[in-house]
Amino acid sequence: MSEILVLVDHVDGDVKKVTLELLTLAGSLGTPAAVWAGSGYSDAAKAKLAEYGAEKIYVAAADEIGDYVSAPKAEVLAHLVAERSPAAVFLAATGEGKEIAGRLAIKTDSGVISDAVGVGEGFVAEQSIFGGGVNVRSRVTKGTPIITVRPNSTAPVAAPAAGAEEKVEVALSDAARAARIVERVVQEKGARPELTEAAIVVSGGRGVGSGENFAIIEKLADALGAAVGASRAATDAGWYPHQFQVGQTGKTVSPQLYIAAGISGAIQHRAGMQTSKTIVVINKDAEAPLFEIADFGVVGDLFQVVPQLTEEIEKRK
């Protein structure tokens, strides 16, 4: 079976969950080969990639790869596509992943599919567009299929493989060294899972009323091991940082469970969460449109319902 390259998404040397999902997906269609680009590679990372099915691990460990925006990683992948003629290349549909995919498509004269929620036989990708209203099946018709896949599209399954390492040396072009990252500023670290990767997301909207009140949303999130999200009304008001906004101009999330408190369900909010597997809505207005897509809804005051829910969950632990 031919190789499918999976670009490893890593932060501080830790492999992100979406990479394991991509390895699992690649394993269902060919032979997964992980591509590590940048510093931070370790035995622990290697073990993780092998555990989830990487037959091969291409390692381009030069520090300078991480010193510039997106372009160096695209050059590493383009080099491998030319040398190895893989059947396809999978990347995470994150801001950076999509940028790398776009640049790689031009370098290799290949088509690119963005934001797939599944990939099947013949690398036909499934996309969920217009805020989940339309399902599309699309495919690349020229070159090597390059596909970015949304986090949480596939459950990662352990499938131990060889993890045979191969070093890759790529001389970066001047163009790839044009936008230099001079400093990384870490604002929110916290113990909570990352919004787009989390299995459970608890979001608050205008109904939460203030930044301080978001503590009750955070408590419920922590009881469930969930990430915290917010509607634009809440981020615009400055109650919660912008990077946690869910929706059309925020993050797209697709968790197993999405709980929304004090969010009405505007189309622009739904665009970012409509593909969640289970949706729970808490709102005092029985007419709130988000109830239309709820699997379970409580019409009530979130200041009563949310703390009680948190308490009940703690009791059941």
């Binding site: 949706i279 729970v280 809505v281 808490i282 029985a286 109830f291 709820a294 699997d295 379970f296 809804g297 409580v298 019409v299 009530g300 005051d301 009563q304 319902v305 949310v306 703390p307 009680q308 829910l309 948190t310 308490e311 009940e312």
Partner: peptide
């Protein structure tokens, strides 16, 4: 889905 009205037990039902 199911939508219930909070009668003091909405959190517990959720």
């Amino acid at each position: 889905g199911t939508v219930v009205k909070d009668e003091g037990d909405g959190g517990a039902k959720a």
